[in-house]
Simulated scan of single mutants.
Amino acid sequence: MAEEPRRRGAARTDELLQVTLDLAAEVGYAGLSIEAVARRAGVGKHTIYRRWPTMAALLLDALSRAWTTDLGYHDTGDVRADLREQFLRSAPALAAPPIGPVYRAVIAEAQADEGLRATLHDRFLRTVEESTLARITRAQEAGELVGGVDLTFPAEVLCGTLYYRYLLSNRVADETTVDALLNMFMAAYGRR
């Protein structure tokens, strides 16, 4: 029987990222290490260290690869409906494996690592905040929301509330929660 050919390059990277996600879902961050990933993947530690200098860097890349939900908002001309659709579309990815547990692990590690916290913000949170701000700014320009108000903080509150619910608490972020959040937002910023 022929031996399986050695995997290199992109195929090896994909395999290592998938092994990382699978292992993180099984053992959580506490059980995760470069050694554990290497053992599960059947490679030497050097194979992983050539690609990622730390476990946190590996986890961030694994998260990036696993995140398949489009973060772009639809623009139907109804900002409330567009925000609602996006928040409900994102919910399953944030709440369930593989992303939920891995994301929570990275957030936990980021509390003790300023560099990781900055990278987490730059690679994930900033993208979410900026796309939300862009959508509500377009609504403001179209007259759906009150003018003359900086919407940066409201965009952070919208995203932050859902991230808090999905990733840091044991409370659900279901349709009722999303509707209540959007009702508050529209009461404060919607055209009356």
Rank of each mutant, 00 (worst) to 15 (best):
R84K: 08
G100Q: 13
L133V: 03
G100V: 14
K45G: 11
A105T: 08
V102I: 11
P97F: 15
R117D: 03
L116S: 05
T127M: 06
A91E: 13
F153Q: 05
L133T: 01
G77R: 00
E109G: 11
Q86P: 11
T76E: 00
G72S: 13
A96G: 04
D78M: 02
A66W: 09
E144F: 01
D113A: 10
L116R: 05
L83P: 09
A66H: 09
T76K: 03
K45W: 02
I48M: 07
T76C: 12
G147Q: 13
D78I: 05
G143K: 12
L88W: 00
E109M: 14
T69L: 03
L94C: 07
G100K: 13
A108Y: 01
R80S: 12
A56M: 01
I136Q: 11
I107R: 13
L125C: 04
L59Y: 00
L63E: 02
A112H: 13
L71S: 06
A91F: 00
A96D: 13
P92D: 07
S131G: 03
D82E: 06
A110R: 08
L71V: 10
D82V: 13
D150Q: 08
L125R: 11
A142C: 06
I99L: 15
T119A: 13
P97D: 06
H46I: 14
Q86N: 10
